[in-house]
Nucleic acid binder design. Sequence first.
DNA 1: CAAGGTTCGTGTACTTAATACACAAAGTTA
DNA 2: TAACTTTGTGTATTAAGTACACGAACCTTG
Lengths: 248, 248
Amino acid sequence: MISHKIVPNISVDCVVFGFDFEKLNVLLVERELKDEKNGEILISDHTLAGYHIFEDEDLDSAASRILKGLTGLDNIFLEQFGAYGQLDRVSAPRDKLWFEHINKGFADRIITVGYLALIDNTKVTLRLKDRNVSWFPVSMVSEMELAFDHKFLFYEALQALQRKVKVEPIAFELLPDYFTLSQLQKLYEALLGTSFDKRNFRKKVAQMHYVIPLKKKQQGVAHKPAQYYLFSREVYEKTRKGRISFII
Amino acid sequence: MISHKIVPNISVDCVVFGFDFEKLNVLLVERELKDEKNGEILISDHTLAGYHIFEDEDLDSAASRILKGLTGLDNIFLEQFGAYGQLDRVSAPRDKLWFEHINKGFADRIITVGYLALIDNTKVTLRLKDRNVSWFPVSMVSEMELAFDHKFLFYEALQALQRKVKVEPIAFELLPDYFTLSQLQKLYEALLGTSFDKRNFRKKVAQMHYVIPLKKKQQGVAHKPAQYYLFSREVYEKTRKGRISFII
DNA sequence: CAAGGTTCGTGTACTTAATACACAAAGTTA
DNA sequence: TAACTTTGTGTATTAAGTACACGAACCTTG
């Protein structure tokens, strides 16, 4: 195994979102520190997926590497949402403790680059079982304890996601290759925290020519089966409107 | 004078935009390196405004400090547009030369955080005279030589600006406290590279209740004087529409 | 195999915003 | 006072946003 040299004062944190057809979830890593002698649990909370970058990789590669490690997936949708360099990132007592035990020798003046990742839940569920990584409903994060400034980073990512989703077709990254319109609607409702009228929603989708109906229908559901649709990035790129509306 | 300790592998670059009522401009710093013996000019090009961060400041403060140094202004509109950590940032021969002479001892693996700055041209013009800093039309940048990856960073910033300007009322940061509607229209046209119909433009502006007409009119112009308007952030915050339109 | 349960898929009327387009009014200068 | 320049305004048409209800298709249960 090749050992890479770490850049001690630069790290990447990934806020990984997933959608289970009901609600939006985020991937968090369990953090636990036990006293070496008596086994007493000193720290038990969660962190975002993140690590230092290596000397020989750029920021995007570092984020990809981290995600590959957690999910086994390549080609995950990844986008920066900000860089953070506050001086007090490691201020809580449990974070200081963690630094003393685990991150010995690392700089405590760290710049973190935040990455927003969107993944198709159906492709990854199996792989996570054997790790201390799991999905948490986005609505639950406010009540959780997260390490360092990770709760802040999480909300920054969530805001960025809500902003982008209105302007770019990135929500589809959270859905499987084909999906029903009800699933799409539920996704937008979960993302934006609103609800839409079904007929109006579908009228809008009908204008998005890059959402294409398939021949396929749902099977084995105890109700009228829904038609499956597909997102086509090619059609999107070709037909995107240059509409300029600077009214806000 | 207090001497600050520099973080050798982290820097901040500012892409500073200004508007002269005709076109969009960017602030660039002249870079020159002469041979110590014969005075031959080894490097002569331009860079963005940027520098390493200090150990005891965060990213935003570093960007503010750099801008204060160049323009004399506080409270400039500042927003991150990305963090860049490519391995080949210093690849051109003249950049290597610069590193050998000027940045001796600095890491060559640098992470740069890009900041987009918007400034009111009318407040700063005087202060720049005595420095090797000047405005260049945005349209001219493609033909210029910029240091390191600064041309790339510039276009990243320009794209971010064009994206944001459609969604947030940040264009007003480029105008003086009061302005005419024609100036506002020219600004949007310069920013987005389009042209608008005057009547339709004004109809749109009429919907933006945060653009407020003043009693004041233009004076001493050789034509019908225009009315001045004001941008009110308070009104904007109160009346912003929560319109959710995810069609793209 | 009929009835009940559940989600799917659709249309119309009304309001609001986007677009295309031309000319008189107010001030300055010669 | 005539010429010049930029300001400021209205209407008709098309496109998009919003509010709202019910029969159709499939499965399950009795």
